[in-house]
Write a protein that binds this DNA or RNA. Structure first.
Length: 748
DNA sequence: CTGCTCGGCCTTTTT
DNA sequence: GGCCGAGCAG
């Protein structure tokens, strides 16, 4: 028996209570930085120590990286155990591979990513014959995704389809599912949806798994969706030892189907639940925690709760206002370099967060310029390169010959003289015969319309794949090498003489290295395992926290991490909060939580950056400081970092670029920073429907045109007219009592 | 069938 | 500013 004392020694009373809690549901409301990961890890170890068999414990984390870390920590505390620790998606994949055949699926299924999914949707959409479709495949795909997250089958969804769009989606959803099953493929949602439905409909399976996983622990519970909730619940009926950990203030994935109600209603769903609150923060300085606390307090739909820490006061949080986006990048790079040179921090102590990925570009060049080592934390980027996707498609088709998307991707890569026309014919032949495309390619002689080069090419391709399939016993990296040689892909890249192709060849070489590493870690791993790991990898999974580099990532990716020094970029209206959320209270509150998550990652220093001019889609616009900056407490230090003297030239360059093309656009007059206003601000007495609502010079926002400045406002009610100058959209006139404009800033 | 150019589109966040 | 798809020439 293992000694439990060391598992409890350095915990607070609340933490210890959570670790020691025995049977029955448990809700741990853990504030940011309250040591929840530690609590879950210890709890798993404690369960093992008190005699619970490892196979009866299931721990769910939000990323594979977190799963790996937890596994390692538990292993250290209780060596030699075999606890399942994984993400919901990996769990789903694992269950489907184990029980798939029992449920009517082939265990060698391919997991389709968002890109593949859009292609399948497009094919299904085209097949419906609905022309002049006004919905993009992506839009329909996300609607289907929502349906699956709500565990709706195509017929069930169809019954809810009252409006036109839903009717279109319902038709596509049918065909989409058919295509996925034909291709023996799963999309991300299937990995939750199918197990959830199986647990709901197959009582025998449900009972087996409930008994297998007597203790279920779920981290980041505030970001679970309905399918995940269903899985958790169905695994906790006979053995209701469900322990969930989360923080409603850190729910940031509503757009992906997460339902904050899962955590808010936990006590209703499990009336016997014990609730433990961890409110003490051990991560941040008082200044940082207070600023974050004051910000999140602006959310109306929120249970007030204290954020307390015994940590030092620390340096004030700063709001750094730069002149342009590139000044901002430069300034951040410089400041980080300085801190390292002065010996205050290491590079790896720094993180830079941003709302959207596109903002990494200017930062990248600034870091290169200043010689600051950095890594952009975006796990999949490498595997998303065309050449790597191609090679992986070969592997996917080998592992699953039914995979239509992979077939279409590589059948003519390198060129085998097979064009679109021939492929269309092959596809209709395959559909008629109800066979996969690869099998159809082997029977190309039966398709009389395909002849000449195309027919030979298809036959050769089929022969190639048959030959390669016989070598599936090879370790993944050797199989990749063989694919490259036999397919002609390597020759194609080698002989082109193009520098770009030489780079591609090098990337493919790195892919082989990655495959070898994967296999070296565990020789029993297969090609399918390799593919699955790549597809289910999250952005932080590729993060190297050992090397001394600045970490650059999105706010979403930063969840669960911590850094001594944090810079947040572009804290501006339209970016944070993002413009797509403006006007929707729920989404605005999620943006505020996102900002809160970013802020609470910081341990010692927090800097919120903004620029007065920001380039977006090749256009330069004046920005408006984020509403979140105004909501911060007074002790936040507003710093004008525009460095007039040196930044002048960059700003002037920007202005020169704005040029006559945008001369109709005037400075909004918004200041890059300002001291917070006193709460007792006198609201002007405005009659709704009157012209005063949009007084000239007010800064307003429109859902489509973005920010603008009111030029003229006259009339009342239905006769009201408001003329607005928009950045990049010229002047527009709005009329009537109800005008789709949001006032961002009234005339000073 | 291939490869090129042009134009329209987009762009939140991710498993 | 970048990507994808359509359209056209070879």
């Amino acid at each position: 028996m293992i000694d439990v004392a060391p598992l409890l020694a350095d915990l607070t009373d609340d933490q210890r209570a959570a670790v020691q809690h025995g049977e029955g549901p448990l809700l741990i409301l853990a504030a940011a930085g309250s040591g929840k990961t530690r609590v879950i890890t210890r709890r798993v170890a404690h369960l093992l120590a008190t005699g619970v068999p490892a196979r009866n414990i299931l721990a769910i984390t939000f990323t594979n990286k977190a799963a790996g870390e937890m596994k390692a920590r538990v292993e250290k505390l209780v060596p030699g155990n075999q606890v399942w620790v994984s993400t919901f998606h990996s769990l789903g994949a694992r269950l489907l591979r184990m029980y798939g055949e029992r449920l009517g699926f082939d265990r060698n299924f391919t997991i389709y990513d968002t890109d593949d999914r859009a292609k399948v949707v497009k094919a299904a959409l085209d097949a419906t014959g609905i022309d002049n479709v006004k919905y993009s495949p992506e839009r329909i795909a996300s609607e289907i995704s929502k349906a699956k997250n709500q565990l709706l089958t195509p017929p069930q969804y169809e019954r809810t389809a009252t409006d036109f769009m839903r009717q279109v989606v319902a038709k596509v959803y049918h065909g989409y599912e058919k295509r996925l099953r034909m291709a023996n493929a799963m999309d991300f949602d299937d990995l939750l949806y199918l197990p959830a439905r199986a647990l709901r409909e197959n009582e025998e399976l449900r009972r087996d798994l409930d008994a297998r996983f007597k203790y279920v622990l779920i981290d980041e519970y505030q970001d679970t969706n309905m399918a995940q909730y269903e899985i958790a619940k169905r695994l906790s009926i006979d053995h209701p030892n469900l322990c969930v950990v989360g923080d409603p203030d850190q729910s940031i994935y509503k757009w992906r189907g997460s339902d904050i109600k899962n955590i808010l209603d936990f006590e209703r769903d499990f009336p016997a639940a014990r609730v433990i609150t961890l409110s003490q923060n051990y991560r941040s300085t008082k200044n940082i925690l207070h600023a974050a606390g004051v910000l999140i307090d602006h959310n109306k739909q929120r249970k007030k709760k204290p954020l307390v820490t015994d940590n030092e006061q620390g340096t004030p949080v700063t709001a750094l206002a730069f002149e342009t986006g590139s000044d901002e990048a430069d300034g951040v790079a410089q400041r980080i370099k300085e801190a390292v040179q002065q010996g205050r921090f290491k590079y790896r102590d720094h993180a830079v967060f941003m709302r959207i990925n596109a903002l990494t570009r200017s930062l990248e060049s600034a870091f290169v310029k200043h010689g600051v080592p950095f890594q952009i934390v975006k796990g999949l980027a490498f595997f998303e390169r065309k050449e790597n996707r191609d090679v992986l498609a070969y592997l996917r088709l080998l592992a699953n010959p039914q995979d239509a998307i992979s077939f279409l991707r590589i059948v003519n890569e390198p060129s085998r003289g097979i064009g679109k026309v021939s492929l269309d014919k092959l596809q209709s032949f395959a559909a008629d015969q109800e066979i996969g495309l690869l099998v159809a390619a082997g029977q190309v002689a039966r398709v009389t319309e395909i002849k000449g080069k195309a027919a030979t090419g298809l036959r050769d391709f089929h022969r190639l794949m048959t030959e390669l399939r016989a070598r599936m016993d090879l370790p993944p990296h050797e199989l990749v090498q063989l694919v490259l040689e036999k397919s002609g892909y390597e020759t194609m890249l080698k002989e082109s003489g193009d520098q770009e192709d030489a780079d591609r060849l090098a990337n493919v070489g790195e892919l082989i290295t990655a495959a070898k590493q994967f296999w070296d870690e565990d020789n029993s791993r297969t090609v399918t395992d390799f593919l699955e790991q790549i597809t289910l990898a999250s952005d932080v999974d590729g993060w190297d926290e050992q090397s001394d580099q600045v970490s650059v990532m999105t706010l979403h990716a930063s969840k669960g991490l911590e850094f001594p020094v944090v810079y947040m970029l572009a804290v501006e209206q339209g970016l944070l909060p993002h413009e797509r959320s403006v006007g929707n209270t729920e989404e605005e509150e999620e943006e505020r939580r996102l900002c809160f998550v970013g802020m609470t990652r910081a341990m010692k220093e927090l800097h919120l950056c903004s620029a007065r001019l920001r380039e977006k889609r090749g256009q330069i616009n004046y920005t408006i400081p984020s509403i979140f900056l105004q909501e911060l407490p007074r002790e936040v230090k507003f710093v004008d970092a525009s460095g007039r003297n040196q930044a002048r030239s960059a700003a002037d360059e920007y202005r020169a670029k704005i040029g006559p093309a945008a001369s109709d656009w005037a400075d909004t007059g918004a200041q890059p920073y300002f001291p917070p206003k006193p709460k007792t601000e006198i609201k002007p007495n405005i009659v709704p429907g009157s012209a005063d609502e949009f007084a000239p010079d007010a800064v307003v926002q429109h859902a489509e045109y973005g920010f603008g400045k009111v030029v003229e406002a006259t009339g009342f009610g239905a006769l009201r007219k408001v003329k607005v100058q928009f950045a990049g959209h010229g002047t527009k006139v709005f009329a009537g009592a109800s005008i789709p404009l949001k006032v961002i800033k009234r005339k000073a």
